[in-house]
Each structure stands twice: as structure tokens, then as C-alpha cells.
């Protein structure tokens, strides 16, 4: 049954290869077309081969300030990654033992994963808008000059934007932690305790090093999902725009291969990030398996 080399095998192999082509084909077509000659258009054929559109992108020809949007997204992704890792690992440790509200918190986490993004985005926008109005009311009521003259809004990348992104990254973090602790061999922990380690020492010296590779996985989700997040944070970034928001704007305004050049760069950047995470993952699992042997 299901033998390698059987007729069924080749049938599904072809199916899988076609699926992979479907997944990656379009991506390679824009990578190729971003090297379009100066007179080339948005579609094939290639009209020469050049770095023209990368140059245009570098000069920022008419395009919004992509560089600073990129830096903002990078910073936000980094902060969201750290928070996702810390909060998920902490919650994962808590969930190892039943506690009051555990069930409810878990259901909430899953619900957050599947709630329509636009609904959540609207809710958070409303929340911060009402917060603004409350602050302004206080300012007027008690004549607080700082509020009356300077206060604009609480909506921002690191307030509402970050919080909304966390409702998308944290569920993945917690699910990974569940998967990790389901397979966790508790005898190592027990051994540490028998040798006189305190609870914290056991966590720090035994549990965390063993689950370290999975923590890197949580980091990968935390960073990439934040870096590319668009639907949830679309209404709550305040005055600033992240890279995905700028990219969406560009899809309707840009009609030159410059958008492919941009797509190529962000995609390659994503690949480098993913590759880096895998490298760290691999190094950590290797050193872990040496210790546990």
C-alpha cells in the first residue's frame, strides 16, 4: 500500500509538483521580471535585462518613502517577535497545569485566530478612539494644558498596532508551546529536582534549553507574521504606515516593474529571515541532542 514507485505514487507526486509550481511559479515570474529592461513592461517578454528598476526604487522615483516604511516594519516585527516569544513561553509554562480560567483563555486564543480581521481591526480602532475622547474630555474638564494643546491620539504603531498584531501571533506561539510540552520528557526535570535544583533553576537550566529550538520557531512566526501583517492592523497603525500597508497602496498606483523590484527585495528579505531562523534552529537542536545523549 502507498508504495514508492507505484502508479498512485507517481500520480500524487505529479499533483504535488504542480501544487509547488502553483505556489512558487508566480513568485519566480516577478523575480525574473524585476530585471526587466528600462523599456520593459509589467508582463513578459523580457525587454532586455537590467537593474534599472532596482535603481529607480533606490532613487525612490515617485514612490512613497519605502525605506522608512521598511525600517518601521522591521522594528515592529522585532518587538512583536520578542513579546510573542516571552508571552507564549510564559503562558505555555502556565498551561502545563490546570488553572482557573485556563479553558476560557484557550478558547479566547483560538477565537482570536479565526475572528474576521476587519472586525478586530474595527474594534481596536473604536477602543482607542474612545480612549482618545476620554483623555480629551479629561483635558478639557481639568484644563490640563499639555493635553489640550499637544495631545493627538493614542492610536499608534506601538500601541494599537502592536497589540492587534499580537492577537494574531500569540495564538501560533501558544499552539507551538502545546505541541512542545505534549512531547516533553518530564524525567529530565525530575532528575534536576532530585539533584536539588529549585523550580526556577529547573526551568532555566533544564526546561528552557531543551525547548530552545521550538522557541526559535515561535520567533519565526512572531517576526514574519508581524512583518507581513496587513488586514488586522490596517485601521490601527495611526499616522504611520507599515511596509505591507504601503505595498497595498502601491498595487493601485504603480504601473511599472518597480513594484516587482520591490516585491523581489521583500521576498528575498523574507527568505533570508526564514533561512536565518532555520540555521539557528538547526544549531540549537544539534547542540541540544549532544547534551541529551
Amino acid at each position: 500500500m502507498h508504495r514508492t514507485g507505484s502508479r498512485g505514487f507517481y500520480f500524487f507526486l505529479i499533483f504535488f509538483v504542480l501544487f509547488a509550481l502553483f505556489l512558487y511559479g508566480p513568485m519566480f515570474s516577478i523575480i525574473l521580471l524585476s530585471f526587466q529592461g528600462p523599456n520593459g513592461g509589467l508582463t513578459f517578454p523580457m525587454n532586455g535585462f537590467s537593474f534599472h528598476w532596482f535603481g529607480e526604487l533606490w532613487k525612490g522615483a515617485g514612490v512613497v518613502d519605502i525605506g522608512s516604511a521598511f525600517r518601521r516594519s522591521l522594528l515592529l516585527g522585532f518587538v512583536v517577535m520578542i513579546l510573542t516569544v516571552v508571552l507564549s513561553v510564559a503562558a505555555g509554562l502556565a498551561f502545563r497545569k490546570q488553572f482557573r480560567g485556563a479553558e476560557l483563555l484557550f478558547l479566547m486564543t483560538i477565537a482570536s485566530l479565526i475572528v474576521p480581521s476587519i472586525v478586530l481591526s474595527l474594534g481596536v480602532a473604536l477602543e482607542f478612539r474612545l480612549l482618545d475622547e476620554t483623555i480629551k474630555w479629561f483635558g478639557g474638564r481639568f484644563e490640563i494644558e499639555k493635553i489640550n494643546y499637544e495631545f493627538q491620539t493614542t492610536l499608534g504603531m506601538f500601541t494599537s498596532g502592536m497589540g492587534t498584531q499580537l492577537t494574531w501571533t500569540l495564538p501560533f506561539g501558544l499552539l507551538i508551546m502545546f505541541a512542545v510540552f505534549n512531547r516533553f520528557d518530564k524525567s529530565y526535570e525530575e532528575a534536576a529536582r532530585d539533584l536539588g535544583a529549585t523550580q526556577w533553576q529547573t526551568i532555566r537550566e533544564v526546561v528552557l534549553p531543551i525547548i530552545a529550538p521550538s522557541i526559535v520557531g515561535i520567533g519565526l512566526f512572531g517576526f514574519t507574521l508581524s512583518y507581513d501583517e496587513l488586514a488586522r492592523s490596517s485601521q490601527v497603525m495611526g499616522a504611520t504606515n507599515t511596509l505591507p500597508l504601503e505595498l497595498r497602496g502601491l498595487t493601485t498606483t504603480v504601473t511599472t516593474p518597480i513594484i516587482y523590484a520591490l516585491g523581489t527585495i521583500t521576498t528575498l528579505f523574507s527568505f533570508v529571515v526564514i533561512g536565518t531562523f532555520f540555521l539557528i534552529f538547526w544549531l540549537l537542536s544539534r547542540s541540544r541532542s549532544k547534551v541529551l545523549r
Partner: peptide, 24 residues
């Protein structure tokens, strides 16, 4: 095996969902 109880460690996690999911 004995599993230590760290339920308070879930608090920051729960706070995020309270602030950015339940209230909204």
C-alpha cells in the same frame, strides 16, 4: 511527574487578549 504550578505566568498573555480582543 510533578509539574510546577506557574499559572500567574499566563497573566501577561491573558492581558493582551483582554485588551485587544475582548474589550474591542
Amino acid at each position: 511527574y510533578f509539574v510546577p504550578k506557574f499559572s500567574w505566568l499566563a497573566l501577561p498573555f491573558a492581558a493582551v487578549f483582554f485588551l485587544f480582543f475582548v474589550i474591542p
